[in-house]
Design a protein around this nucleic acid. Structure first.
Lengths: 186, 186
DNA sequence: GATGTGATGTCACTTGATGACATGAACCGT
DNA sequence: ACGGTTCATGTCATCAAGTGACATCACATC
């Protein structure tokens, strides 16, 4: 949600997004991205670990916000209540510009390698959430299950929101999805 | 669970497993795998799409078994009952030799690229399960959530079983994990 | 003005992955 | 037995991702 004009990292992000849309992820070469950003390919790899990572720059912000929400949740809240609070915060963060999200998601959906990267980001996020829950004194197994259930809701709700089948506020959709998960598993 | 002596594909699988253990995934070159299997690197890529895929050869068997279980589940069963039936079949299949599973899992855990591949395999499996549930007349959203919940249980239970913290039958652990998920989300 | 620090460029190299073509063995119908 | 087809593999060439080593330039600090 931050604007990026000056640094090479920001220009590389922009260039990559544009090229991935114009000719697709696989058909885009790192050299091309670098050239459009006015730097060398070598410099690209100084800013991003690999060709996929350039699309996942903001993920640390989300993780930080969710972790903060977990820490700040009211004392004594049960696992799923804590997770629900975190999801609400996450929905507020992710649910800002739907067009950009849809854009990005189209790129990712079109390429398995990018899906892999997204999945592992979510898995790592789940690990951190579980750790946050354990830090609140929640038993390991419950922590893992609640965290993973939260990631599941986040994923499904986001997908629904970004696909436009569901027009409302992402936070609302997340709450509905969580309720639906409760109903289905019950 | 099938034995593989003769074909090049089987020899490549064996060679890859050995080398990934001996020196790690990244440190192993496709040329080395091919050499140990008595073929060329080019031939490796004729049998496996990439260097990771060689570790995920059996995944189609699992998917097939789960899908069959979904089709054959008693008529009128609710989403989670169908998923539970599939998980029971899956537990029976996966829970056979724990040593080999532990072995494989150690390799995967040690390398992010392999984790990515495993995650996308599970995601695809989830997609197929959801489709199977929809084919039974279950509403799309419930189908997706039940399928994804099933994958979640499969993943967590398998992890627990293979880590040895839980000694019993994988099918039992799956059932317990499912019950725990119900409790947590309730 | 010297010196150090950080970001970038240049060069060389390894490795994963793919396309094009050749070869050789097994198989099949006559 | 023969000629032809098919399939698996080898060979060669090539591209692109990624990394290490070293040079360079700008800028800040003393």
């Amino acid at each position: 949600m931050v604007r990026w004009e000056p640094g090479a990292a920001g220009r590389l992000r922009e260039a990559a997004m544009e090229l991935y849309v114009e000719r697709g992820f696989e058909q885009t070469t790192v050299a091309e991205i670098a050239q459009r950003a006015g730097v060398t390919a070598r410099t690209f790899f100084r800013h991003f670990a690999d060709k996929r990572e350039v699309l996942f720059a903001g993920s640390e912000d989300l993780a930080g916000a969710l972790m903060r929400a977990i820490v700040e949740a009211p004392a004594g809240a049960g696992p799923m209540a804590v997770v629900a609070a975190a999801l609400d915060v996450g929905g507020g963060l992710l649910g800002q510009d739907r067009e950009r999200s849809r854009h990005r998601q189209l790129i990712i959906r079109a390429n398995p390698e990018l899906q892999e990267r997204e999945l592992i980001k979510l898995a790592r996020l789940g690990d951190r959430l579980a750790e946050g829950l354990r830090a609140r004194g929640i038993a390991p197994r419950e922590a893992v299950l609640a965290a993973e259930a939260g990631i599941l809701v986040l994923r499904v709700a986001f997908e629904s929101w970004v696909s436009g089948t569901d027009q409302g506020d992402l936070r609302v959709i997340m709450a509905e999805t969580l309720a639906a998960l409760r109903t289905v598993t019950a």
